[in-house]
Amino acid sequence: MTQGERVKEVRKTLGLTLEKFGERIGLKKATMSAIETGRNALTDANIKAIHREFNVDYIWLTTGEGEMFVDSDDDFIEKIDRIMAGEDDARKNIFKFMLSLNDDDIAALGRILDQMIEFFKEKD
């Protein structure tokens, strides 16, 4: 199954028209049709938009492996609680907080951590 066919499967599963699906990710009906039929390739921005808007698994959308939809944040939070049973709330909350960050926030945090590492290297 191609990426375009997977997009169509998502859209049909959600019961959305080409127009309604496209509106939610910022694309026109004609563009959606071209993606689904393989005339246009999905861009990384399209994939990320579909992932964010419809909770579609990024790996499934790009490769076809795994499940179509990702677990909700509530499911992830419950898993964190189970995995970290016995840990203090501060440790659990760090992971829960990370779930709330968007891609830009994660990139900014990464830059801050890199700068912090460099600071401590220079300090020693």
Rank of each mutant, 00 (worst) to 15 (best):
G15V: 03
D75I: 15
I112Y: 13
M98L: 15
K96A: 06
L99W: 14
V70Q: 15
E67W: 00
K29T: 02
E122N: 13
K123M: 12
F120K: 09
L99A: 15
R111N: 11
F76G: 00
G110R: 11
N55M: 10
A41D: 06
K28D: 09
D71K: 14
A41W: 02
A49W: 04
I83M: 05
K92R: 11
M32I: 15
N55T: 13
G110T: 07
L14P: 08
T13N: 11
E19C: 04
D57F: 08
R11S: 01
M68S: 12
K79L: 08
I112A: 15
R39V: 04
I50Y: 08
I47F: 02
A41Q: 06
I83C: 02
R6K: 01
F69N: 11
L61A: 04
L27R: 15
G15R: 02
T13G: 09
D114F: 01
A90L: 14
M1P: 05
E118D: 06
M84T: 08
A41G: 04
D57H: 10
F119S: 05
R52Q: 11
V56D: 04
I77Y: 09
D103I: 04
A30C: 05
K48N: 08
K28C: 08
D44F: 08
E65C: 06
K8W: 00
K123R: 15
F119G: 05
E19D: 14
A49K: 08
E5A: 09
E36R: 11
T31W: 10
N46I: 00
K123Q: 13
R111P: 01
N40S: 07
I35Q: 03
I117E: 14
R39Q: 07
S100P: 03
I77K: 07
D103P: 09
E53Q: 12
